[in-house]
Nucleic acid binder design. Structure first.
Length: 293
DNA sequence: TATTCGTGGTG
DNA sequence: TCACCAAGAAT
């Protein structure tokens, strides 16, 4: 079972969202920034932060010149703030080793911090029009249904997933067409072939969908235990970081202690934040975002 | 391969 | 209400 490229591309032409990082005048840097921000983060929350970010730091060299604290502050509450630090480091590497230009080669992109199998190919395809299998959670779901006839994708396996999508990419000299196909596959998974209640009535692949033909069987594979958030280390780290984001300079530990009642967990989380470089301790024992003292 | 790492909207 | 979900990467 396969997917007809032109059918999907026609649907994409008519239904793609008008996102700023898809505009013709968006730079590869803008695409890279968007891809990092979009990791595990909804489009609606990324949009305003991305706009401010690109206005403030329109080139890698601009971000490289900023302090870590400024970067974390601009990242705001997008979540997973280590992404911001890694993007900052990547910008420095891009300036130091790539002439200030975002690399177009997948392997070079993979060598940058915060850029993995998905993001490297997304940048190669969406910023540079390269033919590359772009596999995210949306694409895995579309392929699971339309190609494999399963309700959900099983546990991820990078190599197998890449091979699956590679086999779907249109061949020929027009790499930009293959790149658009990758974007279209993602967009279909984001808008139509969605997780909870797929909108099969609106799907351009309905007639050929393996899952439809199989009678829409329920998912039978392994399920992930639902992860709680309240009270976890992630929660506590977020609370601590939020205190530092909310103030200009260093704060006393006593102020951080207000953020969470369990001293043991709180101190362990503060230690992990220090270890991750998300927080620094000043000479007089106070705490601040990195570079802000 | 399985866990860890934020945050907030939603059905 | 609360479990699920949202363009993953690093270890």
């Amino acid at each position: 079972m396969s997917i007809d490229p032109q059918t999907l591309l026609d649907w994409f032409d008519a239904n793609a969202r008008d996102l700023p990082w898809r505009h013709a005048d968006c730079t590869p840097w803008g695409v890279l920034v968007s891809e990092i921000m979009l990791q595990q983060t909804p489009v609606a929350r990324v949009l305003p932060v991305w706009r401010q970010w690109m206005e403030r730091w329109p080139k890698p060299a601009d971000l490289a010149a900023a302090s870590q604290g400024e970067v974390l502050r601009a990242w705001g509450k997008l979540g997973y703030p280590r992404r911001a630090l890694r993007l900052h480091t990547a910008a420095n590497t891009i300036v130091a080793e790539h002439g200030g230009e975002v690399p177009a080669d997948v392997d070079t992109l993979l060598s940058l911090p915060g850029i993995g199998a998905y993001t490297a190919r997304a940048v190669a395809a969406f910023a540079y029009g390269r033919r590359a299998p772009v596999v995210d959670t949306n694409v895995r779901r579309v392929v699971a249904r339309a190609v494999h006839g399963a309700a959900e994708a099983g546990p991820p396996s990078t190599k197998r997933d890449l091979d699956d999508v590679e086999a779907l990419l249109p061949d020929g000299p027009d790499e930009a067409r293959a790149a658009r196909f990758s974007a279209a596959l993602m967009e279909l998974g984001a808008l139509v072939c969605i997780a909870r209640k797929p909108r099969c009535d609106d799907c351009p692949l309905f007639a050929d969908c393996a899952w439809q033909k199989a009678g829409r069987p329920a998912y039978t594979g392994p399920t992930r235990p639902t992860q709680r958030y309240s009270g976890t280390d992630r929660h506590v780290r977020g609370l601590l970081l939020d205190v530092l984001r909310g103030t200009t300079g260093p704060v006393e530990k006593a102020q951080l202690d207000l953020a969470w009642p369990k001293a043991g967990q709180r101190d362990a989380c503060l230690a992990s934040l220090l270890s991750d470089g998300l927080v620094e301790q000043t000479a007089d024992g106070r705490f601040a975002l990195p570079g802000e003292h």
